[in-house]
Protein backbone atom coordinates (compact mmCIF):
# COMPACT_ATOMS: atom_id res chain seq x y z
CA UNK A 1 0.00 0.00 0.00
CA UNK A 2 2.78 2.44 0.98
CA UNK A 3 4.58 1.65 -2.22
CA UNK A 4 1.41 2.33 -4.20
CA UNK A 5 1.11 5.72 -2.54
CA UNK A 6 4.79 6.42 -3.15
CA UNK A 7 4.48 5.52 -6.82
CA UNK A 8 1.37 7.62 -7.14
CA UNK A 9 3.18 10.63 -5.63
CA UNK A 10 6.13 10.11 -7.99
CA UNK A 11 3.80 10.18 -10.98
CA UNK A 12 2.55 13.63 -9.97
CA UNK A 13 5.99 15.15 -10.32
CA UNK A 14 5.83 15.69 -14.12
CA UNK A 15 2.46 17.41 -13.67
CA UNK A 16 3.90 19.68 -11.00
CA UNK A 17 6.87 20.57 -13.20
CA UNK A 18 4.40 21.35 -15.98
CA UNK A 19 2.43 23.57 -13.63
CA UNK A 20 5.49 25.50 -12.50
CA UNK A 21 6.62 26.06 -16.07
CA UNK A 22 3.25 26.95 -17.55
CA UNK A 23 2.32 29.28 -14.70
CA UNK A 24 5.65 31.04 -15.03
CA UNK A 25 5.26 31.50 -18.79
CA UNK A 26 1.61 32.49 -18.56
CA UNK A 27 2.29 35.24 -16.09
CA UNK A 28 5.17 36.49 -18.21
CA UNK A 29 3.11 36.85 -21.38
CA UNK A 30 0.39 38.80 -19.59
CA UNK A 31 0.26 42.18 -21.26
CA UNK A 32 0.47 44.13 -18.01
CA UNK A 33 3.66 45.98 -17.29
CA UNK A 34 4.25 45.62 -13.56
CA UNK A 35 7.10 48.05 -13.66
CA UNK A 36 5.02 50.84 -15.20
CA UNK A 37 2.20 50.16 -12.75
CA UNK A 38 4.43 50.50 -9.76
CA UNK A 39 6.61 53.30 -11.04
CA UNK A 40 3.74 55.64 -10.30
CA UNK A 41 1.45 57.87 -12.32
CA UNK A 42 4.13 60.22 -13.59
CA UNK A 43 6.91 57.81 -14.34
CA UNK A 44 9.43 58.62 -17.00
CA UNK A 45 10.70 55.73 -19.14
CA UNK A 46 13.91 55.92 -17.10
CA UNK A 47 11.99 55.53 -13.81
CA UNK A 48 10.18 52.52 -15.26
CA UNK A 49 13.48 50.97 -16.27
CA UNK A 50 14.74 51.46 -12.70
CA UNK A 51 11.73 49.69 -11.22
CA UNK A 52 12.15 46.97 -13.81
CA UNK A 53 15.74 46.40 -12.76
CA UNK A 54 14.70 46.45 -9.12
CA UNK A 55 12.13 43.73 -9.77
CA UNK A 56 14.57 41.71 -11.88
CA UNK A 57 12.29 41.96 -14.91
CA UNK A 58 15.08 43.16 -17.21
CA UNK A 59 16.83 39.77 -17.13
CA UNK A 60 16.31 37.16 -19.87
CA UNK A 61 13.42 34.74 -19.29
CA UNK A 62 15.48 31.59 -18.55
CA UNK A 63 17.41 33.52 -15.91
CA UNK A 64 14.18 34.77 -14.35
CA UNK A 65 12.85 31.23 -14.39
CA UNK A 66 15.98 29.82 -12.78
CA UNK A 67 15.76 32.41 -10.04
CA UNK A 68 12.11 31.59 -9.58
CA UNK A 69 12.81 27.88 -9.18
CA UNK A 70 15.66 28.49 -6.73
CA UNK A 71 13.42 30.74 -4.66
CA UNK A 72 10.68 28.15 -4.75
CA UNK A 73 13.07 25.53 -3.44
CA UNK A 74 13.71 27.83 -0.50
CA UNK A 75 9.99 28.20 0.09
CA UNK A 76 10.06 31.76 -1.18
CA UNK A 77 7.07 32.49 -3.38
CA UNK A 78 7.99 36.12 -3.77
CA UNK A 79 6.21 39.27 -2.70
CA UNK A 80 2.77 40.41 -3.66
CA UNK A 81 2.96 43.95 -4.96
CA UNK A 82 -0.79 44.46 -4.46
CA UNK A 83 -0.96 43.61 -0.77
CA UNK A 84 2.71 44.26 -0.11
CA UNK A 85 3.12 40.97 1.77
CA UNK A 86 5.10 37.79 1.09
CA UNK A 87 2.91 35.55 -1.06
CA UNK A 88 3.41 32.55 1.21
CA UNK A 89 2.11 34.50 4.22
CA UNK A 90 -0.85 35.79 2.22
CA UNK A 91 -1.72 32.32 0.99
CA UNK A 92 -1.44 30.61 4.36
CA UNK A 93 -3.57 33.25 6.02
CA UNK A 94 -6.21 33.11 3.29
CA UNK A 95 -6.28 29.45 2.36
CA UNK A 96 -8.32 28.27 5.37
CA UNK A 97 -11.04 30.77 4.45
CA UNK A 98 -11.36 29.34 0.95
CA UNK A 99 -11.01 25.75 2.05
CA UNK A 100 -13.63 26.11 4.75
CA UNK A 101 -16.08 27.74 2.39
CA UNK A 102 -15.50 25.26 -0.42
CA UNK A 103 -15.80 22.24 1.86
CA UNK A 104 -18.91 23.69 3.46
CA UNK A 105 -20.44 24.20 0.04
CA UNK A 106 -19.39 20.73 -1.10
CA UNK A 107 -20.80 19.03 2.00
CA UNK A 108 -24.08 20.93 1.69
CA UNK A 109 -24.19 19.89 -1.91
CA UNK A 110 -23.42 16.21 -1.26
CA UNK A 111 -26.03 15.97 1.46
CA UNK A 112 -28.67 17.23 -0.94
CA UNK A 113 -27.45 15.87 -4.26
CA UNK A 114 -26.75 12.19 -3.52
CA UNK A 115 -30.22 11.43 -2.10
CA UNK A 116 -31.73 13.42 -4.98
CA UNK A 117 -29.75 11.41 -7.51
CA UNK A 118 -30.68 8.11 -5.88
CA UNK A 119 -34.36 8.98 -5.70
CA UNK A 120 -34.33 10.15 -9.30
CA UNK A 121 -32.72 6.91 -10.43
CA UNK A 122 -35.00 4.67 -8.40
CA UNK A 123 -38.10 6.50 -9.54
CA UNK A 124 -36.72 6.90 -13.02
CA UNK A 125 -39.20 8.57 -15.34
CA UNK A 126 -41.55 9.63 -12.56
CA UNK A 127 -42.50 13.19 -11.71
CA UNK A 128 -39.95 13.12 -8.88
CA UNK A 129 -37.23 12.31 -11.39
CA UNK A 130 -38.25 15.17 -13.65
CA UNK A 131 -38.47 17.62 -10.77
CA UNK A 132 -35.02 16.61 -9.52
CA UNK A 133 -33.58 17.11 -12.97
CA UNK A 134 -35.19 20.47 -13.40
CA UNK A 135 -34.12 21.72 -9.97
CA UNK A 136 -30.48 20.70 -10.09
CA UNK A 137 -30.11 21.75 -13.69
CA UNK A 138 -31.59 25.13 -12.92
CA UNK A 139 -29.00 25.50 -10.16
CA UNK A 140 -26.02 24.88 -12.37
CA UNK A 141 -27.46 27.04 -15.10
CA UNK A 142 -27.04 30.23 -13.11
CA UNK A 143 -23.78 32.15 -13.05
CA UNK A 144 -22.53 32.00 -9.45
CA UNK A 145 -22.04 35.73 -9.14
CA UNK A 146 -25.65 36.25 -10.17
CA UNK A 147 -26.92 33.66 -7.66
CA UNK A 148 -24.79 35.24 -4.97
CA UNK A 149 -26.04 38.74 -5.68
CA UNK A 150 -29.65 37.59 -5.73
CA UNK A 151 -29.24 35.72 -2.44
CA UNK A 152 -27.70 38.80 -0.86
CA UNK A 153 -30.50 40.95 -2.23
CA UNK A 154 -33.26 38.67 -0.99
CA UNK A 155 -31.90 37.37 2.32
CA UNK A 156 -29.88 40.33 3.47
CA UNK A 157 -31.45 43.35 1.86
CA UNK A 158 -35.15 42.46 1.69
CA UNK A 159 -35.82 39.75 4.26
CA UNK A 160 -33.01 40.80 6.61
CA UNK A 161 -32.40 37.20 7.70
CA UNK A 162 -28.76 37.08 6.85
CA UNK A 163 -25.96 39.24 8.25
CA UNK A 164 -24.09 41.75 6.14
CA UNK A 165 -21.90 40.13 3.48
CA UNK A 166 -18.70 41.34 5.12
CA UNK A 167 -16.38 38.39 5.14
CA UNK A 168 -15.99 35.45 7.50
CA UNK A 169 -17.19 36.83 10.78
CA UNK A 170 -19.06 39.80 12.18
CA UNK A 171 -16.84 42.90 12.10
CA UNK A 172 -17.23 43.36 15.83
CA UNK A 173 -17.05 39.72 16.87
CA UNK A 174 -13.78 38.39 18.18
CA UNK A 175 -12.02 36.07 15.79
CA UNK A 176 -11.47 32.63 17.36
CA UNK A 177 -7.82 31.72 18.05
CA UNK A 178 -6.27 29.88 15.14
CA UNK A 179 -6.18 26.12 15.62
CA UNK A 180 -7.20 24.76 12.24
CA UNK A 181 -7.93 28.11 10.59
CA UNK A 182 -11.52 26.96 10.09
CA UNK A 183 -13.63 29.37 12.11
CA UNK A 184 -16.44 26.87 12.60
CA UNK A 185 -14.09 24.36 14.18
CA UNK A 186 -11.87 26.82 16.02
CA UNK A 187 -14.80 28.55 17.67
CA UNK A 188 -16.15 25.20 18.87
CA UNK A 189 -12.73 24.20 20.18
CA UNK A 190 -12.64 27.19 22.48
CA UNK A 191 -16.37 26.98 23.16
CA UNK A 192 -17.15 30.41 21.73
CA UNK A 193 -20.70 29.77 20.50
CA UNK A 194 -21.25 33.42 19.68
CA UNK A 195 -18.35 33.31 17.23
CA UNK A 196 -19.56 29.97 15.85
CA UNK A 197 -23.01 31.37 15.22
CA UNK A 198 -21.55 34.44 13.58
CA UNK A 199 -19.15 32.48 11.38
CA UNK A 200 -21.86 30.04 10.36
CA UNK A 201 -24.34 32.74 9.46
CA UNK A 202 -21.66 34.48 7.40
CA UNK A 203 -20.86 31.28 5.57
CA UNK A 204 -24.40 30.29 4.82
CA UNK A 205 -25.13 32.43 1.77
CA UNK A 206 -21.81 31.90 -0.02
CA UNK A 207 -21.98 28.21 0.95
CA UNK A 208 -25.46 27.88 -0.48
CA UNK A 209 -24.36 29.72 -3.63
CA UNK A 210 -21.61 27.17 -4.14
CA UNK A 211 -23.87 24.26 -3.24
CA UNK A 212 -26.54 25.31 -5.72
CA UNK A 213 -23.90 25.42 -8.40
CA UNK A 214 -22.46 22.00 -7.60
CA UNK A 215 -25.72 20.10 -7.05
CA UNK A 216 -26.04 19.25 -10.69
CA UNK A 217 -22.80 17.41 -11.44
CA UNK A 218 -23.11 15.31 -8.31
CA UNK A 219 -26.81 14.54 -8.65
CA UNK A 220 -26.46 13.81 -12.35
CA UNK A 221 -23.60 11.41 -11.98
CA UNK A 222 -25.27 9.75 -9.01
CA UNK A 223 -28.43 9.31 -11.04
CA UNK A 224 -26.62 8.15 -14.17
CA UNK A 225 -24.50 5.59 -12.41
CA UNK A 226 -27.35 4.47 -10.18
CA UNK A 227 -29.40 3.71 -13.28
CA UNK A 228 -26.65 1.56 -14.77
CA UNK A 229 -26.06 -0.09 -11.41
CA UNK A 230 -29.75 -0.80 -10.97
CA UNK A 231 -29.97 -2.43 -14.37
CA UNK A 232 -26.74 -4.39 -13.89
CA UNK A 233 -26.64 -8.16 -13.53
CA UNK A 234 -25.67 -8.20 -9.89
CA UNK A 235 -28.56 -5.94 -8.85
CA UNK A 236 -31.00 -8.01 -10.81
CA UNK A 237 -29.62 -11.14 -9.21
CA UNK A 238 -29.91 -9.55 -5.78
CA UNK A 239 -33.46 -8.48 -6.55
CA UNK A 240 -34.35 -11.88 -7.90
CA UNK A 241 -33.02 -13.57 -4.81
CA UNK A 242 -35.62 -11.73 -2.80
CA UNK A 243 -33.58 -9.05 -1.00
CA UNK A 244 -35.55 -6.02 0.19
CA UNK A 245 -35.56 -3.12 -2.31
CA UNK A 246 -33.90 -0.89 0.27
CA UNK A 247 -31.08 -3.37 0.72
CA UNK A 248 -30.68 -3.75 -3.02
CA UNK A 249 -30.52 -0.02 -3.56
CA UNK A 250 -28.18 0.86 -0.72
CA UNK A 251 -25.89 -2.15 -0.48
CA UNK A 252 -25.69 -3.25 -4.07
CA UNK A 253 -26.57 -0.40 -6.36
CA UNK A 254 -25.38 2.64 -4.40
CA UNK A 255 -22.06 1.13 -3.41
CA UNK A 256 -21.29 0.45 -7.04
CA UNK A 257 -22.72 3.72 -8.22
CA UNK A 258 -20.48 5.72 -5.90
CA UNK A 259 -17.36 5.11 -7.99
CA UNK A 260 -18.15 7.66 -10.70
CA UNK A 261 -19.43 9.99 -7.98
CA UNK A 262 -16.07 9.90 -6.25
CA UNK A 263 -14.30 10.50 -9.57
CA UNK A 264 -16.50 13.50 -10.14
CA UNK A 265 -15.84 14.90 -6.66
CA UNK A 266 -12.29 15.84 -7.62
CA UNK A 267 -13.59 17.76 -10.60
CA UNK A 268 -16.44 19.29 -8.66
CA UNK A 269 -13.95 20.48 -6.07
CA UNK A 270 -11.85 22.00 -8.81
CA UNK A 271 -14.95 23.63 -10.32
CA UNK A 272 -15.91 24.95 -6.92
CA UNK A 273 -12.49 26.47 -6.40
CA UNK A 274 -13.00 28.21 -9.74
CA UNK A 275 -16.49 29.34 -8.81
CA UNK A 276 -15.06 30.42 -5.49
CA UNK A 277 -13.12 33.15 -7.21
CA UNK A 278 -16.33 34.90 -8.19
CA UNK A 279 -18.26 34.04 -5.02
CA UNK A 280 -15.45 35.41 -2.90
CA UNK A 281 -15.58 38.61 -4.88
CA UNK A 282 -19.33 39.00 -4.28
CA UNK A 283 -19.25 38.13 -0.58
CA UNK A 284 -16.01 39.97 0.26
CA UNK A 285 -14.65 36.60 1.38
CA UNK A 286 -10.98 36.94 2.30
CA UNK A 287 -9.88 33.78 0.51
CA UNK A 288 -7.22 32.89 -2.03
CA UNK A 289 -9.57 33.13 -5.02
CA UNK A 290 -10.29 36.82 -4.72
CA UNK A 291 -6.61 37.30 -3.95
CA UNK A 292 -5.56 35.65 -7.20
CA UNK A 293 -8.08 37.55 -9.32
CA UNK A 294 -6.99 40.89 -7.99
CA UNK A 295 -3.35 39.98 -8.52
CA UNK A 296 -4.03 38.82 -12.06
CA UNK A 297 -5.81 42.05 -12.91
CA UNK A 298 -2.92 44.05 -11.46
CA UNK A 299 -0.41 41.93 -13.43
CA UNK A 300 1.11 40.97 -10.11
CA UNK A 301 2.91 37.75 -11.04
CA UNK A 302 4.02 36.28 -7.74
CA UNK A 303 0.57 35.78 -6.15
CA UNK A 304 -0.83 34.26 -9.34
CA UNK A 305 2.00 31.76 -9.47
CA UNK A 306 1.72 31.07 -5.75
CA UNK A 307 -2.01 30.54 -6.02
CA UNK A 308 -1.69 28.21 -8.97
CA UNK A 309 1.01 26.18 -7.24
CA UNK A 310 -0.96 25.93 -4.01
CA UNK A 311 -4.04 24.80 -5.91
CA UNK A 312 -2.00 22.29 -7.88
CA UNK A 313 -0.67 20.74 -4.69
CA UNK A 314 -4.15 20.61 -3.18
CA UNK A 315 -5.46 19.07 -6.37
CA UNK A 316 -2.73 16.44 -6.47
CA UNK A 317 -3.28 15.49 -2.83
CA UNK A 318 -7.00 15.35 -3.38
CA UNK A 319 -6.63 13.06 -6.36
CA UNK A 320 -4.31 10.84 -4.43
CA UNK A 321 -6.99 10.50 -1.79
CA UNK A 322 -9.61 9.82 -4.44
CA UNK A 323 -7.47 7.14 -6.02
CA UNK A 324 -7.13 5.50 -2.64
CA UNK A 325 -10.85 5.86 -1.98
CA UNK A 326 -11.41 4.13 -5.33
CA UNK A 327 -9.74 1.04 -3.95
CA UNK A 328 -11.96 1.06 -0.90
CA UNK A 329 -15.19 1.53 -2.81
CA UNK A 330 -14.48 -0.58 -5.86
CA UNK A 331 -12.66 -3.81 -5.03
CA UNK A 332 -12.17 -4.49 -8.75
CA UNK A 333 -9.63 -1.67 -8.98
CA UNK A 334 -7.82 -2.80 -5.86
CA UNK A 335 -7.53 -6.35 -7.08
CA UNK A 336 -6.24 -5.37 -10.46
CA UNK A 337 -3.59 -2.97 -9.12
Amino acid sequence: MLKTIGDRILTTIPALIGVVLVSFLLTRVLPGDTAAYFAGPAATPQAIAEVKAKLGLDKPLPEQFAKYVVDLAHGDLGQSLTTGQPVLADLTSRLPASAELTLFGLILSLVIAIPLGVVAAVRQGSAVDHICRVVVTAGVSLPVFFTGLILVYVFYFILQWSPAPLGRIDVFATTPPTVTGFYLIDSLVVGDYEAFRSALSQMLLPGVTLAIFSLAPIARITRASMISALSAEFTRTAKASGLSPRRVIVTYALRNALLPVVTTLGMVFSFLLGANVLVEKVFAWPGVGSYAVEALIASDFAPVQGFVLAMAIIYVVLNLLIDLAYGVIDPRVRMSS
Partner: peptide, 12 residues
Protein backbone atom coordinates in the same frame (compact mmCIF):
# COMPACT_ATOMS: atom_id res chain seq x y z
CA UNK B 1 -4.57 16.08 -18.52
CA UNK B 2 -3.35 16.16 -14.91
CA UNK B 3 -1.24 19.19 -15.72
CA UNK B 4 -4.16 21.12 -17.20
CA UNK B 5 -6.49 19.88 -14.53
CA UNK B 6 -4.18 20.90 -11.71
CA UNK B 7 -4.74 24.53 -12.65
CA UNK B 8 -7.66 26.25 -11.02
CA UNK B 9 -9.78 26.27 -14.16
CA UNK B 10 -11.35 29.69 -13.97
CA UNK B 11 -8.08 31.37 -13.09
CA UNK B 12 -6.45 29.54 -15.98
Amino acid sequence: SDTIMAFPLFVL
